[in-house]
């Protein structure tokens, strides 16, 4: 119409791009975890299913486990959920959840509706525990070895690719995979 509307038009275009960018955020992060190769933080947190019971890191010693940080307010976590159920079905490594800054009642409903892939879910409503793990955002997944060392961290949703390329090879010693 007139040239004075041009800046507004350009801005609207940019806003649309930014909106798409936010909604469709990429799952690949660029942040290296300071925890990689270091012992996982020890914790003792209430169990989501039974708050009188504690989920403790000492009980997890001696086994591989995947530590998955999630929350019901996290849209990406819902997308990730199907992958977690697949991981559970594979039965190779147990999933331990950390329900982060969340309402436990909503979290229970979520698990009831979508299925529960976790061996146990620890509740971290204050976000205190996630600080120790250096969590930037949900979802994040840590692979912890039997010695309690974090060997891999996935920022963003766990993908098929990460599962087959990064996690499975670490779980199986090379010669066992060959035989």
């Amino acid at each position: 119409m007139n040239r004075f509307l041009l800046p507004l038009g350009l801005f609207v275009l940019l806003a649309v791009v930014l909106a798409v960018g936010i909604v469709h955020s990429p799952t690949k992060g660029l942040i290296a975890s300071p925890l990689l190769g270091k012992p996982a933080p020890s914790f003792s947190l209430p169990d989501l299913a039974d708050p009188s019971h504690q989920v403790r890191s000492v009980d997890l010693r001696g086994h591989w486990y995947l530590f998955n940080v999630w929350a019901t307010w996290c849209g990406e976590c819902r997308a990730e959920h199907e992958m977690l159920l697949k991981v559970q079905l594979a039965g190779v490594v147990p999933l331990v959840g950390l329900d982060w800054k969340d309402d436990p009642a909503q979290a229970l409903t979520w698990l009831k509706q979508l299925g529960n892939p976790y061996q146990a879910v620890a509740v971290d409503s204050s976000g205190r525990e996630a600080i120790d793990w250096g969590v930037y955002a949900a979802p994040e997944t840590f692979l912890v070895n039997p010695q309690g060392i974090v060997v891999f961290k996935q920022i963003g949703a766990l993908t098929d690719e990460a599962w087959t390329r990064e996690i499975l090879p670490r779980l199986a010693p090379p010669r066992a995979a060959g035989s």
Partner: peptide, 24 residues
Amino acid sequence: SVHSFAADPRRGIFILAFLIVMIG
């Protein structure tokens, strides 16, 4: 990393809404 926005999904939306109101 656009991912950081997911730390709190409201943050990204709010920023965008605010920029739209002010600049728009």
